[in-house]
Design a protein around this nucleic acid. Structure first.
Length: 353
DNA sequence: GTCCAGCTCC
DNA sequence: GGAGCTGGAC
């Protein structure tokens, strides 16, 4: 890896990029009033999640928790409920823990210091740089997936961009191009370029403000970058969901035994290879369970697992959920509104209406 | 239907 | 190094 790459035209790249950004950037809710708390919430929600998906969640979250103090005082279940369907629920737990940390250790103000920011739960190198640059104008270059793609294409860099050495190198490049006093708009411009123009498939090089400086565009192979390592192969997982209804309410269970969706409510789930949902509930509820109709299967992916979930109507003898805190009754309209759930649970509920 | 992007933490 | 979730692209 060289260190003198594209130094002569740096100022040209920055100027063209910033001009493009001023004229073309999207009007997003968190950009209107980029105070640290709002930027923080947006950055956490935007991790692994598309802008269009985040916008309604962001609005609803800020309506309910307008300030850091409001959030810090909330229960984890309420935060998770507002997160229901957004995925990666650890982000919600970390955000709440982080809000409490900022109240307790930083007088309620997100720290301006990079190392201090990294101490906050859920805040890693990317998020720290994003918040400090966008909210405070501190000159930390961001390296997210968009910037990684833009830079590896400009440099036509075939190295694995996920290694520590390459990330360090790419951040040095971005930092070197960052104009003094323009950290916020420069970082956002790099990410916006990746999101709107320098997209993974069929990038719009003709519309790119810096295509003259791009080695991959010149070579005609931008889609070959970044070169990422192969992903883990997917595995098929079979699941059964048990649907037990009492009037308008359904039996729900907090996920505990799954390796995912932990702590969220769901229709009771079980692996058929461990006896299935009827056997599980017979044992957990100590009552008789009879199997009814099986509903259409639901497909849902969680990282490398491809779930095929078969909802089954069950009839149950008498039992009580008292003294069984992992079970409760809930109406379908409470899922995601009062009770924290995943979108898998919402898909099951959709089958019932 | 299948593939894919994406940041933090353990 | 690998796992966590979802929805949009193809």
């Amino acid at each position: 890896m060289g260190t003198e790459v594209i130094s002569a035209s740096d100022s040209g790249i920055s100027r063209a990029l910033l001009e493009w950004y001023e004229a073309n950037h999207r009007d997003l809710p968190w950009r209107r009033n980029p105070e640290p708390y709002r930027v923080w919430v947006s950055e956490i929600m935007l991790q692994q999640t598309r802008v269009d998906t985040v916008i309604p969640y962001f609005e609803r979250f800020l309506d309910r928790f307008p300030t850091l103090s409001d959030l810090a005082a909330a229960s984890e279940d309420e935060v998770l409920t507002l997160w229901s369907g957004l995925g990666y629920y650890r982000r919600a737990r970390s955000l709440l823990a982080g809000a409490k940390t900022v109240i307790e250790h930083h007088a309620g103000v997100f720290p301006r210091d990079y190392e201090a920011a990294l101490e906050i739960p859920g805040v890693g190198p990317y998020t720290a740089a994003a918040i400090l640059s966008v909210a405070y104008g501190e000159p930390w270059p961001v390296l997210d997936g968009n910037v990684e793609r833009v830079l590896t294409r400009i440099l036509r860099l075939a190295d694995n961009p996920r290694t520590a050495a390459t990330k360090k190198y790419l951040k040095e490049i971005a930092g070197g191009w960052m104009p003094r006093g323009k950290a916020s708009s420069f970082n956002q411009a790099m990410m916006e370029l990746g999101a709107l123009i320098c997209v993974p498939v069929s990038p719009n090089c003709a519309a790119c403000p810096i295509h003259d400086a791009c080695a991959a565009a010149e070579h005609g192979d931008p889609e070959n970058f970044p070169k990422l390592p192969p992903r883990r192969k997917t595995v098929a997982v079979e699941l059964e969901a048990g649907i037990i209804r009492r009037g308008k309410r359904y039996l729900l269970e907090r996920n505990e035994d799954l390796d995912y969706l932990e702590g969220l409510w769901s229709f009771p789930l079980a692996r058929p290879d461990s006896g299935g949902i009827a056997a599980r509930l017979r044992k957990r509820l100590a009552t008789s369970i009879e199997e009814g109709a099986e509903l259409e299967a639901i497909r849902h992916s969680i990282t490398f697992r491809r779930l095929t979930l078969r909802p089954r109507i069950l009839g149950a003898g008498s039992f009580s959920t008292r003294a069984k805190p992992s079970f409760r009754w809930g109406r379908a309209d409470e899922l995601g509104n009062v009770l924290p759930v995943s979108s898998l649970c919402l898909k099951i509920a959709d089958r019932l209406s």
